[in-house]
Structures are given as structure tokens and as C-alpha cells.
Nucleic acid binder design. Structure first.
Lengths: 118, 118
DNA sequence: GAAATAAGCAACCAAATCGTTGCACATCGC
DNA sequence: GCGATGTGCAACGATTTGGTTGCTTATTTC
């Protein structure tokens, strides 16, 4: 990994319109748990991911569809199973957007501080 | 700013239960726009923030309450106005959580890669 | 003190969200 | 082929969300 990374255009969330759906997809406990499970356990089928969950298989399917729509996971049909896995690019986009507003906030708070001190 | 920063405990989102409401609060275009406005324009009253917005003053009030509940903004009554401003700590928490899952994803993908290569 | 401005409160509405159940369809293993 | 397993699809229901309007209350300002 190179010390300086340039975030590629296609993973950057340019503005609120891009970023909001992404954060909305992350804004659910069950979905964050799913991402955690895919991360620690590797790719898995719906039944596998639903096993041990509080909610039904169909609920898990819906959550996976939401994550998929946000671009955070992808799936592939393998035999009678559909196997889901992480799609890291859009997570990088969320990251980039948070970095973006963090910098904005830092600047804003710095300006305020300067203003108060003057 | 020191080169190495240790994220304080109180701004860290420890698990999905902490982080989900935070992302949910960020998962709305209008709210992201509000945060952007507070960031670029500094603290502002409700009427000020609502001016030029697509939605009504009351809608803005509700969005500010959501952001406030998530800990992303705070307000203070000044005369007949209520002035809202950014609260950077919880944004840092969202940031920390994204960092956390980014690392998890990197590790997971690395393990997968290794597994495939073996 | 009266008009204007800023905000708070409550009721209401439409649509989205999160969950369920029931059933159909596809595929695997014997 | 047949049962078991994994998924897809559709309908339904409860709750939340995002928005509105109307009215009241508080504070300035002239």
C-alpha cells in the first residue's frame, strides 16, 4: 500500500445526493451486523446469513437488497444458493465523504475560533 | 495537531448499536445539506437555516432535532432565536466506526485473497 | 403597547421502512 | 423421481419518517 492514496473518482461521494443513500443503508443495526458477518465470516448464502439472526430469512433478503442498492455488497447465484460478499468501493466512498465533511467542520471550527479570538 | 491521534473513548462508536442511529441521522439529503450549511456558514437560527430551503421551517426544525438526538449538533436559545451549531465529537465517532469496519473489510479481503492463492 | 419576527406545539397525511406469512419455483442428493 | 433445501415473489400490517398547515407563545422594535 502506497503512503499517499488518491481516491479514485468512481468511489467518491461528490455531494449530499450521493452520500445520503449510502449512510441511510448503513443506518440500520441489522444491516451493520450483516456487514460485520460478511466481513468476519466471508461470503455467505442468505440462509447462512439468516441463521442465528433475530429476523426471518426474507427480512435478511430485504436488507441485503438495500445494501446491494447502495453498492455495499454484491451477489452471485451459485447453484440453488445466492452468495453475497462485500463490495469495498462504496464503503470507500462513504469514508471519503466523511473525510470531506470532517475537513469542512475542522475548517469551520477553526474559523470560528479565530473569529472569537480577534 | 499531533501526528498520532488516539481517539478518545467517548467519541468512539463501539458497535453497530451505537453507530446505526448515527448513520441513520446522516442518511438524509436535507440533513447533510443542513450540516454543510452550518459548516460553511457557521452557527445559525432556524429561520436562517430554513431560508432558501426546499422545505418549511417546521421540517427544518424536525431535521435539526434528529441531528441533535444523534449528537451531531447542539442548540442554544438566544433571545427569541435558537441558534444551532456543529458538535464535532459524534462525527468523529462515525468516522471512527467507518475506520473500524474499513479495517475489518481490508482484513477480510486480504484473508480471502490469501485463501484463493494458496 | 402594538406590529412584526422567531420559535414551539399539535394534528394530520402520504409514503417509506421493517417485519411478517404463505406459497411457488429451482436445484441438489439419494 | 422425490424429498429436502435454498431462494423468489406477493400480499399484508404496524410503525416510522418526512412533510404539511394552523395556531399559540415569546421576544424585539418602533
Amino acid at each position: 500500500m502506497s503512503p499517499v492514496e488518491i481516491t479514485p473518482r468512481h468511489v467518491r461521494a461528490r455531494d449530499a445526493r450521493d452520500a445520503a443513500p449510502l449512510f441511510a443503508a448503513l443506518g440500520d443495526e441489522t444491516r451493520l451486523a450483516l456487514l460485520g458477518r460478511l466481513s468476519s465470516g466471508g461470503p455467505g448464502s442468505i440462509a447462512h446469513l439468516a441463521h442465528g439472526s433475530k429476523v426471518s430469512r426474507q427480512a435478511i433478503t430485504k436488507h441485503l437488497e438495500v445494501l446491494s442498492f447502495a453498492g455495499l455488497v454484491t451477489s452471485e447465484k451459485q447453484g440453488r444458493e445466492r452468495v453475497w460478499k462485500l463490495a469495498p468501493e462504496r464503503l470507500a466512498a462513504a469514508h471519503a465523504y466523511l473525510d470531506h465533511i470532517s475537513r469542512q467542520w475542522d475548517d469551520a471550527l477553526e474559523r470560528l475560533k479565530t473569529f472569537v479570538e480577534e
